[in-house]
Computed example of a mutant assay.
Amino acid sequence: MKVVNAEFVISAVGPDQYPVDGLPEIALAGRSNVGKSSLINRMINRKNLARTSSTPGKTQHLNYYRINDEVYFVDFPGYGYAKVSKTKRQVWGEMIEKYLLDRETLRLVLLIVDLRHLPSKDDELMYDWLKHYDMPVCVVATKADKIPRSRWPKHLKLIREALAMRAGDGFIMFSSEEGIGKDELWSHIKQHMKNEDLGPNITEE
């Protein structure tokens, strides 16, 4: 996808601040400092539209980025950072859960993990939660440039096994530094942008 226009729109704290233009939305979830902002910047060919920080836990709202007036990236607060208060984590959790369950324009959740390491318990819980509600998920393993190519298959296998990934979910290796996986990820996103039948199944058992 050729990006000709990308802009930060809003840091939303609730549904009354979400955009109302009906564009499809792609959510990005992952632990603090996993590289979500860097991934966004690489995907839109910008150096610092999504602000990266050496301080984990800085993103505290749902950050909306509109791309080509066709789609939004919605960057979630990073999870699993101990210095964020329990109360704040609870507020974030409730905000994210409500968004995921209620947002009709949500088309896909990108679960961002670090290729170098096994998924955290929070990663596993997020993936299981998303699949419980039948949400479309693509796992994106970032920082591929940080390990030798010969070790990629082993690390991908370990991540797939740790998450107990379901058949049919996307799984893309990515490098914000080198652009590895960028075209593949855009292709995957574009498939979901057009599909209006991928919303969550929130029927309780």
Score class of each variant (00 low, 15 high):
Ser120Gln: 09
Met193Phe: 05
Arg42Trp: 04
Leu49Ile: 10
Ala144Thr: 00
Arg31Cys: 05
Phe174Tyr: 08
Asp128Met: 10
Gly22Asn: 05
Thr52Gln: 04
Pro24Gly: 08
Leu163Ala: 06
Gly80Met: 03
Lys182Asn: 07
Ile202Leu: 03
Gly78Pro: 02
Glu7His: 07
Met126Glu: 09
Ile112Met: 13
Gly93Leu: 03
Leu198Gly: 10
Ser32Thr: 03
Arg166Ile: 10
Asp183Glu: 15
Leu185Arg: 09
Val20Gly: 07
Ala144Trp: 07
Lys2Ser: 11
Asn68Phe: 10
Ile112Ser: 06
Arg166Ala: 15
Met1Glu: 12
Trp152Val: 12
Thr142Leu: 12
Met95His: 06
Arg89Asp: 10
Ser187Asn: 14
Gln60Trp: 01
Asp102Ile: 01
Ser53Glu: 00
Arg103Ala: 03
Pro15Gln: 08
Ala6Lys: 07
Asn63Asp: 13
Lys2Trp: 09
Ser120Ala: 09
Ile96Gly: 07
Arg107Phe: 04
Val91Leu: 13
Leu118Lys: 14
Lys36Thr: 08
Val113Gly: 05
Tyr72Asp: 01
Gly199Arg: 03
Pro19Asp: 00
Ser11Met: 06
Tyr72Leu: 04
Lys182Leu: 07
Asn195Cys: 10
Phe73Ala: 00
Ile202Thr: 15
Thr59Phe: 06
Ser85Tyr: 03
Arg42Tyr: 06
Leu39Trp: 02
Lys157Asn: 14
His155Leu: 09
Lys36Phe: 02
Arg107Trp: 04
Leu28Glu: 02
Ile44Asp: 06
Leu185Val: 07
Val4Ile: 13
Val109Ile: 15
His132Pro: 01
Gly14Trp: 08
Glu204Thr: 13
Pro153Phe: 02
Gly57Ile: 00
Glu205Asp: 12
Lys194Thr: 13
Glu204Ala: 11
Tyr79Val: 00
Pro200Gly: 11
Gly14Leu: 08
His192Tyr: 15
His117Lys: 12
Glu161Trp: 08
Ala162Asp: 10
Val91Ile: 15
Val113Asn: 06
Asn63His: 12
